[in-house]
Design a protein around this nucleic acid. Structure first.
Lengths: 140, 140
DNA sequence: TCTTGACCCTGTACCAACTACAGGGTCCAT
DNA sequence: ATGGACCCTGTAGTTGGTACAGGGTCAAGA
C-alpha cells in the first residue's frame, strides 16, 4: 500500500533511476516484487537500505565496502569491531589522499608562482613539467 | 643508434608498456617508426615527451588537459598565459577536492569517535550511516 | 473511448585511464 | 637450436555509474 515505484524511491534518496537498477544488478539491493505491469515495487525497508547505501557512498566507501557494511549491519548480535576497523581503514585512506593532494598542490602552486609571463619557449610552468623542451609530434 | 624499445621507454619513465601503447592509441604520442621485426622504435625526443606526460599526469591533469598542454608547448612563440590559466584552474580543482575530503574526513572521524563497542545493533557508526526516516533532509 | 505524456521495462554501449590477458612473433645468449 | 625475455595485435575487464534505443504501462484529460 505504501509501495514505491523506482522513480519515487530514486527521488526520495537523490538517486537516479538507472543507478537504483545498477545497484540491483550489483547485488546491493534485492530484486523487489513486481506489479502486474512488471514495475518494480519497493517497500519502506528498501528505502532505508538505499539511504544507507547513498550515505556511505557519499562518505567515500567503495561499493565493495558498502556491501561489507550492509552484511555486517545485518548481523545484529555480533560485535561491531569489524565496522570500526573498516571505517578506520577508510579514514586512513582519506588521510593519505589529502596528504597526496596537499603535496601535489604545493608543487603546482610553486610552478605557477614562478611564471613571469612571456612566450611558451620561456614558460616556467612548462619547464617545471619538463626538464627540457617537449618535442613536437612527428610529422608524416 | 640510441633508439629505444617500448620496454626501455616504459622503464625510463616509470610507465607500463601497455600504458605507452594506450597513449599512442589515445593520440598523445605519435606512432613511432618500426624495426624490421615490427617493434616500435623510439627516439630520445619521444622519451622527453613521455616524461612530460607522466609528470603532468602525476600532477593530476586529465589526458585532455595534458593534450592541451602539449599542443600549447609546441607553439613556442605564443604567450604562455593559456598555460597559466590551465594550471591555475587545475589548482582550484585540487583545492576543491582537498576541501571535500577534509569535510568528509571530519564526518567520518566523528562517527568513529562515537563508537563505544558493543553489538552491531547498538553500533554508533552504523547509526551515523543510517539517518532516521524523520530527519531525512538529504545532504550531499 | 481514445490519446497523450509521464513513467517504467530490458539490453546495450559508453566514459576515464588504464590493466590484463590470449595467442601469437622476434631477438639474443647459451 | 632452444629457452626465455621481450614484443605484437586485439579484446575484455576494472569502477560507478550514465545514456540511449526501442519498446510497454498507466492515469488523466478531451
Amino acid at each position: 500500500m505504501n509501495a514505491l515505484t523506482i522513480g519515487k524511491l530514486a527521488a526520495a534518496t537523490g538517486t537516479k533511476v538507472e543507478t537504483v537498477r545498477y545497484y540491483e544488478r550489483a547485488g546491493l539491493i534485492d530484486p523487489p516484487a513486481r506489479t502486474d505491469g512488471n514495475y518494480r515495487s519497493y517497500r519502506p525497508e528498501d528505502l532505508e537500505r538505499l539511504r544507507f547505501i547513498r550515505r556511505t557512498r557519499d562518505l567515500g566507501f567503495s561499493l565493495d565496502e558498502v556491501r561489507a557494511l550492509l552484511d555486517l549491519a545485518a548481523q545484529r548480535d555480533r560485535d561491531c569491531g569489524t565496522v570500526d576497523k573498516l571505517a578506520t581503514h577508510h579514514l586512513e585512506e582519506i588521510d593519505r589522499k589529502i596528504a597526496d593532494l596537499t603535496a601535489l598542490r604545493r608543487e603546482l602552486a610553486g610552478a605557477i608562482a614562478s611564471c613571469a609571463g612571456g612566450t611558451m619557449a620561456e614558460c616556467r610552468i612548462l619547464e617545471a613539467f619538463a626538464p627540457s623542451p617537449i618535442t613536437d609530434k612527428r610529422e608524416k
